[in-house]
Design a binder for these strands. Structure first.
Lengths: 157, 157
DNA sequence: ATGAGTGCAAAGGCTTTGCATTAGG
DNA sequence: CCTAATGCAAAGCCTTTGCACTCAT
């Protein structure tokens, strides 16, 4: 379970590869690779933070709201997209971690902005060991963890 | 790395003290201490996991839904209650951490059940140090963190 | 051509709000 | 007493669903 440490690669450099991977994963769940789905993946691949549906629609003006919701659900089922619920506000969406690398979220309590960050490897390892122990103690089979740091961002501070 | 602290003290032993603290905090934000608010606090103090509104209402049949929402918002503003958003399902509520102790949540991906757990002290310290470093690097003023372990609970596993 | 994907509009479900009534300090 | 709190019902808001049309394979 390698944990990537550099700011994870959610850029456009590997979009070619990404398209292929996405198509394959859609095939696996018997879903077609459509323009709308490619567009959604490209949008998510082009940012460094999870986006709300509103933000996604602003970046792809020609997509119906309902189609966006439906396609994001399909992409989630295909293991391409992950839903991120951070506050009581809107749901956000990002690419699955195996496409971007394991990371966490900085959440501004003031403006609601969300940014990605990574823990250094030693800390991440200590954390994972401690979580495994806690899971074992509770008779819990651990899958993954979510870690948010809540505070005030540079602009609001 | 055993993390077997006892389930944090959200029991009824200190309810007397708790009532006093709650009244004081309500006073501080110019809110009255009413029966409904005391009841909500007692309910939250009586469990070991954050509750949904539905669960809360089941435990206090005589409280209107809207009053529950309003009072939980007041209690949150008073620093007595904390809103916990875990999945895309319902919001949950628990007592503020300074009343119960710092803890995290085990979330069953299958049935949605939520349970509290604590990290052992060394791990928590490593985590906090790493988070402080990450916050500093991002120009972020850290307030607190949230850590959920998602997996399968004993009953669903 | 044939079933999946899309857009539009309407329905759902949790949460919030308006307003008259009741109760806290 | 006088303002805040409560209950009921209606409104809001994000998200999902129904249905006819269009596109992908």
């Amino acid at each position: 379970m390698a944990s990537t440490h550099e700011p994870h690669p959610r850029g456009r450099s590997e979009v070619g590869d990404l398209d292929t991977i996405v198509s394959e994963r859609l095939d696996l769940v018997d879903q077609r690779t459509t323009a709308a789905r490619r567009s959604l993946v490209d949008i998510l691949a082009g940012t460094t933070a999870p986006l709300t549906l509103r933000e996604i629609l602003e970046l792809d003006a020609g997509l119906a709201q309902s189609s966006a919701y439906r396609n994001l659900a399909v992409l989630e089922e295909a293991g391409v997209v992950r839903r991120v619920v951070i506050g009581d506000d809107h749901t956000r969406y990002e690419l699955a971690e195996d496409l971007t690398g394991h990371h966490h979220h900085l959440v501004c309590a003031d403006c609601g902005a969300v940014t990605d960050f990574v823990l250094d490897d030693p800390a991440e390892q200590v954390l994972e060991a401690a979580l495994d122990a806690a899971a074992a103690a509770a008779g819990f089979r651990a899958e993954h963890h979510r870690l948010d740091l809540v505070g005030t961002c540079r602009r609001c501070g």
